[in-house]
Amino acid sequence: MSIISFTRAAAAALAIGAVGLAVPAFAHHSNAMFDYTKGKERELKGTVNQFLWTNPHGYLEMAVTTSSGKIQKWTVEFQGLQGMASRGLTIDSFKPGDEVTVIIHPLRNGTTGGDFYSAVLSDGSEIVPPKEQ
């Protein structure tokens, strides 16, 4: 193939769109704010408000009732689309109103957020921890 014909083909490729890649789509941030100490995972039982299927992170918003009866809103961070899919998650895994159990690595500052570890979905299926897959 000549350079000129390559150029035309390349222009066509350019028109198709961006490149499919094996590396993470976006660089991630530091995870220093989460506590990954074994045994310090926290279990959240609650109701799904929203599940964001987004890059560079997905987010689950859920309402959790505390022991005193107060309802707190929690934010659970996930990996990006590729990472979530590799864990067996889909955009329909968490739907508003679902009753779910989610295990997180909690924020070190003690606020209502954490990094996703595992879950039992509303249909009883499990998203197992990464090392157990």
């Binding site: 941030h29 530091s30 704010m33 929203q50 964001l52 987004t54 890059n55 560079p56 992170h57 997905g58 987010y59 918003e61 707190q72 809103k73 929690w74 934010t75 961070e77 990006g80 909690p106 924020l107 500052n109 003690g110 606020t111 209502t112 957020g113």
Partner: peptide, 26 residues
């Protein structure tokens, strides 16, 4: 897809809730 807010005083990145709302004490 990104929920971090940099504290203007300390620069510390803090995870937020929807629309940048601060998280409360768990």
């Amino acid at each position: 897809g990104q929920r971090y807010y940099a504290d203007p005083t300390t620069g510390e990145l803090k995870l937020t809730g929807p629309n940048g709302a601060p998280l409360e004490k768990a």
